[in-house]
């Protein structure tokens, strides 16, 4: 058995790799799944393809073992070991795998820990620091704990209102800021503005969602068959993970959501949360704050930055965010124009 790294950017290798995967039941190769791959390895036995696996950031992807070698799982263990070693050499010791529920046991056997399993997908992790270390690091509170998850791109008066409501109804509130950086405002900027925007509320703690509050953008779904499954699969896994791994150890009893009148994606996401979180975690949907009958949303704020609509920015943003936007205006606008409005 020999292993070598192959470059799937080269069409010849890409075809070999993809056809092997297709034989083994993986048929989804959209560019947003494949483009993130950094390294791909292929195992050969006497010129025959036997197994493959890839690394994309802190995610192990596209693992396939030819059914001829599946018995006993020895080759599977070899493949996973090798991928973990390669990742370690890249300085990555904390890795995730997204897979079908029927493979959960195989990954558990090689030291992965199950984070969430739904009907059609599962997330597992291995290495350090893992979920246990993440929860240990967070402050723990007695009493009635509420929670809010936000991207806050950027923090608006609408977010502020949501935090205020939660703050008034609970002894303590955790605000989880999504860490994934696919937004106009960087993660550091976003969490800083949230912290500044709520610093007067003494029972509110702003923390990083780390790798555990997952933005759908990073959720691999290549092993699913239809697009339709993908949307709910991501939301359901995210909800289960939140409920079992975060809300449970932190004694969080309520999660507050902003009502979503515009985005269908967010609306269906909220729907899944309602389906999964109760009764252990109550879900409260709060009406959006309006300013002059206009519903405050971060999307509109980003548009206003692009249009230089000062009046709207003043209406929608707290002082703290406003100051940041003023000080960084040319940069933000430049980023918006480059990216298209995100």
């Amino acid at each position: 058995m020999e292993v070598r790294e192959i470059n799937i950017a080269i069409p010849r290798y890409r075809r070999k790799w993809q056809s092997f995967m297709e034989i083994n039941g993986i048929t989804e190769f959209s560019s947003n799944e494949v483009d993130k791959i950094e390294k791909t390895f292929m195992w050969d036995e006497d010129g025959d393809r036997a197994a493959t696996g890839s690394i994309a950031g802190n995610v192990i992807k596209y693992v396939a073992v030819c059914s001829k070698y599946k018995e006993g799982g020895a080759l599977f263990n070899k493949v996973v070991s090798y991928l973990l070693q390669q990742a370690a050499q890249m300085g990555r010791f904390h890795l995730f795998i997204f897979t079908k529920p029927k493979y959960v046991q195989s990954f558990e056997y090689v030291g992965f820990k199950k984070l969430a399993v739904s009907e059609n997908g599962a997330i597992l992790e291995t290495g350090v620091p893992g979920i246990t270390e993440y929860i240990e690091k967070l402050p723990h509170f007695e009493g009635k704990n509420g929670s809010i998850v936000m991207n806050a791109n950027p923090f608006t008066l609408g977010h502020r209102r949501l935090v205020e409501v939660a703050s008034s109804k609970n002894d303590h509130v955790y605000v989880f800021v999504v860490k994934n950086d696919v937004s106009l405002f960087t993660y550091e900027e976003r969490i800083e503005l949230v912290k500044k925007g709520v610093q007067d509320l003494k029972n509110v703690t702003v923390v990083s969602g780390d790798d555990y509050i997952i933005s759908p953008a990073t959720f691999p779904a290549y092993f699913l068959k239809s697009d339709q499954e993908i949307g709910t699969y991501q939301a359901r896994l995210d909800a289960i993970l939140f409920k079992d791994q975060i809300a449970d150890p932190l004694d969080i009893t309520t999660r507050y959501l902003g009502k979503e009148p515009y985005s269908k994606t967010t609306d269906s996401y909220n729907h899944e949360l309602l389906d999964i979180l109760p009764p252990e975690v109550n879900v409260e949907i709060i009406d959006r704050k309006t300013a002059d009958d206009k519903i405050i949303s971060a999307t509109k704020v980003r548009q206003a930055i692009l249009d230089n609509d000062q009046a709207l920015l003043h209406e929608f943003l707290p002082e703290t965010t406003m100051e940041f936007v003023k000080n960084n205006y040319p940069d933000l606008k430049k980023k918006l124009i480059e990216k298209g409005s995100k």
Partner: peptide, 28 residues
């Protein structure tokens, strides 16, 4: 720094070492 050695193949052991206080072993 964090480090890793060993494999998950039969008769082997894979060990990851990272920062901590005291020796704390999570064995599977």
């Amino acid at each position: 720094e964090t480090a890793l050695a060993g494999t998950l193949e039969s008769s082997d052991i894979q060990i990851t070492l990272s920062e901590g206080s005291g020796i704390n072993i999570d064995l599977d």
